[in-house]
Simulated scan of single mutants.
Amino acid sequence: MKKIIFLLALLLLSKAPAFAKPLTVGFLVGQSGIGDQSFNDMTYAGLIKAKQELGIEVVVEDMEKTESAAEKAMQRLIFRRAQVIVANGFEFQKLVETYAKRYPNIYFIMHDVPIGDHDNVVSTVFAVEEGAFLAGVLAASMPDTRKLGFIGAVDIPVLKPFLTGFQAGVRYASPRLPIEVAYISEAPDYSGFNSPAMGHAVATEMYERGVTIIFSVAGLTGNGIIQAARGANRFVIGVDSDQDHLAVGHVLTSMMKRLDIATYNEVAKIAMGRFKPGVRYYGLLEEGVGLSPMTYTRNQVPPKILNRLDEVRLKIIAGDIRFPSTAKPAKGTP
């Protein structure tokens, strides 16, 4: 009986007005959960800023990472009258496409997956390969660099641009420098996003094999990789958020993916009645990706390398450096 009442309530909500003030925004948290100090926490930071500056209400669903749990979380957000739902990650694509059709009066913000055929969905695409290219140039240019490493959470398409961009940057700076690549788990096992202990073990073995700097792209698992860098007295490159403080002096830089900026921007447009569906592209030009300020390590980077990074960044923006890139929306796409 309760299930029938719940479904009837959802049906009624599907015909509700667009939204009323204050705007309620639901957050479907991705694989590595809240507290990953990376992908999810960056998005949450954008929501908190929107709450403080725009007066929105935020409802968080950090559910068990299964399809059935995700759908129930989506239904709970709708039942709680969320007028906007932010879905953080590729695993929610089908769910968003299904519920966007079912609830045309709810706005959806889909991070990391281009969805361009729904009037109530805006999706973000980040040119992570541009930021990863800079990370590769920096890592390959550092004094005493002998061998580099890349550790990804899972070998899936959404992580490929991090690797290809990093490899291209390394080749640009030092064509013959070896790069060792490892993944924590294989799809459909996504535990690689939530395994700090495994990340620590894999990274420690890499450092013992002579890797000087590791680029970590692994969500919560990256925290273990960062601590391995501290233990080995080596460098690591963080990802998504500014992770430099997690092991002061050992996180060379972080390749920041500005989900905070993208989330705030898209929520603000909805709050101000300026929503436009389609794909939003966030690259170096849009300040959607880039390296952290290197607060604790900048004094260890020779000035000529810092100058080179600035030059390479401008060349990428100008289109003078070409490498495997995220497809930009077609001309005229919002």
Rank of each mutant, 00 (worst) to 15 (best):
residue 305 I to R: 15
residue 15 K to G: 05
residue 52 Q to S: 13
residue 59 V to K: 15
residue 198 M to F: 03
residue 287 E to F: 04
residue 34 I to R: 14
residue 186 E to W: 05
residue 139 A to H: 13
residue 189 D to I: 01
residue 52 Q to C: 03
residue 52 Q to G: 06
residue 62 D to Q: 14
residue 244 D to F: 08
residue 40 N to G: 11
residue 252 L to H: 07
residue 30 G to I: 09
residue 94 K to W: 02
residue 273 G to F: 02
residue 217 V to N: 10
residue 19 F to L: 12
residue 193 F to R: 00
residue 86 V to Q: 02
residue 189 D to S: 03
residue 207 Y to C: 09
residue 6 F to I: 07
residue 72 K to W: 03
residue 105 N to A: 03
residue 96 V to E: 10
residue 284 L to W: 07
residue 157 P to S: 09
residue 223 N to G: 04
residue 158 V to R: 07
residue 62 D to C: 13
residue 155 D to E: 15
residue 84 V to P: 00
residue 244 D to E: 15
residue 74 M to H: 10
residue 334 P to T: 06
residue 265 N to E: 14
residue 80 R to M: 12
residue 95 L to N: 13
residue 132 A to Q: 12
residue 292 S to P: 11
residue 3 K to V: 04
residue 120 N to E: 11
residue 289 V to T: 13
residue 143 P to S: 13
residue 49 K to L: 13
residue 44 Y to L: 15
residue 191 S to L: 10
residue 231 G to A: 15
residue 8 L to G: 05
residue 191 S to T: 13
residue 38 S to F: 11
residue 261 I to T: 12
residue 310 D to N: 13
residue 190 Y to F: 14
residue 151 I to P: 00
residue 239 V to I: 09
residue 174 S to T: 02
residue 233 N to W: 09
residue 102 R to I: 02
residue 293 P to A: 05
residue 91 E to Y: 02
residue 181 V to H: 08
residue 66 T to G: 01
residue 215 F to Q: 03
residue 292 S to V: 10
residue 204 T to M: 11
residue 154 V to D: 01
residue 215 F to K: 01
residue 69 A to P: 08
residue 37 Q to Y: 08
residue 6 F to V: 04
residue 224 G to V: 04
residue 144 D to W: 08
residue 309 L to W: 02
residue 69 A to G: 02
residue 43 T to N: 10
residue 205 E to H: 01
residue 191 S to Q: 14
residue 163 L to A: 04
residue 9 A to I: 07
residue 102 R to Y: 04
residue 81 R to P: 01
residue 20 A to Q: 14
residue 29 V to R: 15
residue 108 F to R: 00
residue 90 F to C: 05
residue 116 G to I: 05
residue 34 I to M: 12
residue 71 E to S: 00
residue 161 P to V: 05
residue 49 K to H: 11
residue 322 R to Y: 04
residue 326 T to A: 12
residue 295 T to Q: 14
residue 156 I to Y: 10
residue 117 D to K: 15
residue 221 T to H: 08
residue 19 F to E: 08
residue 106 I to L: 02
residue 284 L to Y: 07
residue 61 E to Y: 06
residue 5 I to Y: 14
residue 307 N to V: 05
residue 87 A to T: 04
residue 250 H to C: 04
residue 121 V to K: 00
residue 244 D to R: 09
residue 53 E to P: 00
residue 51 K to V: 02
residue 165 G to E: 13
residue 162 F to H: 10
residue 318 A to P: 07
residue 56 I to F: 08
residue 210 G to Q: 12
residue 98 T to N: 14
residue 193 F to T: 03
residue 164 T to D: 14
